Simulated scan of single mutants.
Amino acid sequence: MKKAIIFIVTVLCSTTIFAQTKNFLDTPYLETQARVDTMVTPDKIYLNIIIQEKDTKGRVSVEEQENQMAERFKAMGIDLEEQLVIKDASSNFKKYFLRQKEVLKSKQYSLLVYSGKELGEVMMALEQLDIANTSIEKTEYSKIDELELELKTRAVKKAMQKAEALTKPLGQKVGMAIHIADNSQYYPRYNQAPMMEMKAVSANMDKAQPLDIDFEKIKVETNVNVKFALSN
């Protein structure tokens, strides 16, 4: 008896699945694909800063350089708690004659700025403080999630327009969407070591203006595949 019940349930499940598949295949449909992309200017720029003790007779300590940098950043309106973090602190050993060693400390920071102009001002300030070991880590766009949703909406609308253009000459109408697939590829949410262009400034530091820096824009794209039911 139990075997008969199992057999009946199996037959019913198989019939249901077959019926759903058959109904889907019997529905006339048109499949279209649409891709939408855009370029955005990054509004979050991360600058890597390394402060090291100078290997000279009258060297300046890391702590002194750190305090000078912090005071300069505050004067520029930079929020140290929100924009500056310490990434690494280490001590490097350098060998001298007759086995003498001296500890040379260093600290690494990450500074967040919000525009190329602000970055230019920071780089000029660091240069004036004789802190030259800096590099761009990455750039980001803060509203990337909202932008992705907007692009997906535009892509589906574009797929609909393509479907209508294809069916109009045939005298058919585009019905409801019976299947939608988001085929967007995953991509980095930031530009690692982005390209940048710095415009020249005056050689006279007293009259120099902040660097005008243009960053490589971030490309954001989405790709959708939509199946539309057709009717006469």
Rank of each mutant, 00 (worst) to 15 (best):
M1A: 10
M1C: 03
I5G: 00
F7R: 09
I8L: 08
V9F: 10
V11L: 13
S14M: 11
T15H: 01
T15S: 12
I17D: 02
F18Y: 13
F18A: 15
T21D: 06
K22Y: 14
K22D: 05
K22E: 08
L25E: 13
D26L: 13
D26K: 14
E31T: 09
R35Q: 10
R35W: 02
V36T: 05
D37E: 14
M39H: 13
V40S: 10
T41F: 09
D43E: 10
D43G: 11
D43Y: 08
I45Y: 06
Y46I: 10
L47N: 04
I49T: 07
I49W: 04
I50F: 03
Q52W: 00
Q52S: 08
E53N: 05
T56E: 13
T56N: 10
S61K: 13
E64C: 03
E66H: 04
E66R: 09
E66M: 05
E66S: 07
A70V: 00
A70P: 00
A70S: 01
E71I: 02
F73P: 01
F73I: 01
A75D: 04
M76S: 08
L80I: 15
E82M: 06
L84D: 01
K87F: 05
D88T: 05
A89S: 09
S90N: 11
N92R: 12
F93V: 12
K94Y: 08
K94L: 11
K95Y: 12
F97Y: 11
L98K: 11
R99V: 11
K101S: 10
E102T: 12
E102R: 13
L104K: 07
S106R: 12
Y109K: 03
L112D: 02
Y114R: 09
S115H: 01
E118Q: 14
L119W: 00
V122C: 09
M123C: 04
M123F: 01
A125V: 03
A125Y: 03
E127F: 05
Q128A: 14
Q128W: 02
L129Q: 02
D130H: 15
I131E: 00
I131S: 00
A132S: 11
T134M: 02
E137G: 05
Y141I: 10
Y141Q: 11
S142W: 03
K143R: 15
K143T: 09
K143G: 06
D145S: 11
L149V: 14
E150P: 00
R154L: 15
R154S: 15
K157Y: 09
Q161G: 08
A165I: 06
P169L: 11
L170S: 07
G171P: 09
G171Y: 11
Q172M: 15
Q172E: 12
K173W: 01
M176C: 00
M176N: 09
I178S: 14
A181M: 10
A181V: 10
D182M: 07
N183K: 15
A193E: 07
P194L: 08
M195R: 08
K199N: 09
V201Q: 07
S202G: 06
N204W: 00
N204Q: 04
M205W: 08
D206N: 09
K207N: 10
A208M: 05
A208L: 03
L211P: 04
D212A: 15
D214W: 01
D214N: 15
D214C: 04
I218Y: 07
V220W: 03
T222Y: 04
V224K: 02
N225A: 08
V226I: 12
K227V: 06
F228C: 05
S231M: 13
